[in-house]
């Protein structure tokens, strides 16, 4: 465990807590949040942590896996079932066809994986899926034009978590002899690149002190 990875996990946790805060603090409204992105994230955690009960790595690892699975399912449940939240969710705006993304990631996982076993194929699937899971959210933000600051911070923390993970991989590459995780590294780079344009507009809006506008 190194500080970059720990900081990455904490900012990832923060992004999820910001979302939960947004849903409850704004009187349980889910405006500007993409349910599809939240469902994809829940699937990422469920398919990645299949080894939760078979491979014990550390207490920290096990606890964080439970927290990520529970919190992501809580957000999906809340946006689907909670009487107030589901009313504020704008499904006409959240129309990204995420089925294609699911299919593409699964086919890619069948082709590109470390070992052809059930767990490894689903682990690779979860890595690819995480890279593109933010797309429905970014499309929704572009559609709705304005980004309220909690949602903006949510995406910002998610990007920070990925950025810190890339530094963690660079650090591990130089400090550990046999550290190679090509699938996670390449996929993580793609994911961080997806955030880059959002960061650019976020920085512009912060610098010019105007409301964050994403080009439609």
């Amino acid at each position: 465990m190194n500080i970059f990875r720990f900081a990455g996990d904490m900012t990832h946790l923060m992004s999820i807590l910001i979302l939960l805060l947004k849903i409850y603090a704004t009187k349980s409204c889910a405006v500007g949040i993409s349910l599809k992105t939240q469902e994809l994230y829940a699937l990422v955690f469920l398919t990645r942590y299949l080894d939760q009960f078979t491979d014990y790595v550390s207490l920290y690892n096990s606890v964080m896996k439970v927290v990520f699975i529970a919190s992501s399912l809580a957000i999906v449940w809340c946006m689907r079932r909670h009487p107030l939240v589901r009313k504020s969710y704008d499904k006409d705006l959240d129309t990204f066809r995420h089925q294609y993304v699911l299919l593409a990631c699964f086919v890619l996982a069948l082709l590109l994986h470390e070992i052809f076993t059930f767990q490894e194929v689903f682990w690779a699937f979860s890595i690819y899926l995480e890279a593109v899971a933010i797309l429905p959210q970014l499309v929704l933000l572009q559609r709705s034009g304005n980004v309220d600051n909690l949602t903006g911070q949510y995406v910002l923390f998610l990007g920070a978590y990925r950025g810190l993970y890339i530094i963690n991989w660079i650090y591990r590459y130089f400090t550990e002899d046999h550290f190679t995780r090509w699938i996670a590294c390449v996929s993580g780079l793609v994911q961080t690149a997806l955030y880059a344009d959002f960061f650019y507009y976020y920085y512009l809006s912060w610098k010019t002190n105007t409301k964050l506008k994403l080009p439609a």
Binding site: R5, D9, H12, D51, D55, Y56, V57, S58, N61, M64, K65, F68, E114, Q119, W123, Y165, N168, R181, A184
Partner: peptide
């Protein structure tokens, strides 16, 4: 085993 070592990240 090998799997443990490689999959120590979240």
């Amino acid at each position: 085993g090998r799997r443990n070592v490689m999959k120590d990240e979240l």
